[in-house]
Amino acid sequence: MMAVLRGAGSGAWLVARAARGTWTRWNTGDALLAPALARDLARFLWTPVPTVVALSLLTGVIAGLSAARVLALYHAELLVLRALVDALLRQVLPLVVGIFAASGVAVAVANRLGAMSLQREIDALETMGHDPVPFALGTPVIAVAAAVPVHMVLASVAALLGAGLLLAAGANVPWRMIVGIATAQPAVAALATGMAKVALFSLLALMAGAATGARRVATPAELSAAGARAFTRGLLCVFGAAAMWTALA
């Protein structure tokens, strides 16, 4: 228990220090911030998009298939569709994107910190009188924060499209009804909740990666082990937070 609290505290402290240091770099007009941010936006925002869309599309197909089977028995289109959209946007997609964040963000951050430590880049930054935390973690924090709404919106569109295709083809549900329910106020509220969950999951994954990667590594084997540890911790954080959110909601 103490180890978990220590890890959470160290992760939160590192992320906060990175955010504060990056704000200072921004205010002082650090010319190196923009290229580093561009690299991390590509890594954390754009590169994962095809995988997020594919995973969400498949999730939508699975949900649509199940809903089409239910509709074949009960013919309660409105009720089933509303429940499906709500479950997808509020519960399932945040977990899918969250798991992806846990695997991608936590491992990438832990590996980056480990590699920087292994190649003495942390020492190099310290030697030049820089705080290494904003340089190592600052731009990933911004990139992950920017990725949350983009990934969640794209995941929602892909999942609803996948589910809609199955429902239209398998249960003869009209597209107008699917679009109407997917764009109604309850669906927007569910999407906002889902986005808040993904933001929390991504932050936790970032913290897990930072706390794991902050430990010095001396060999490439230790670096690879740190990546695996970061993935497991990130996943536990995401599922723990999801369970607590559901219990408290």
Binding site: L32, A124, G129, H130
Partner: peptide
């Protein structure tokens, strides 16, 4: 860190930031 910033240091084995260009390392 402010005191270190008044020093120029090279360490054995190298310490350039691998992801960055030479110019970026120098501006850093």
């Amino acid at each position: 860190r402010r005191l270190r910033a008044r020093c120029g240091v090279t360490v054995q084995g190298g310490s350039l930031l691998g992801e960055w260009s030479v110019e970026d390392n120098l501006r850093l």
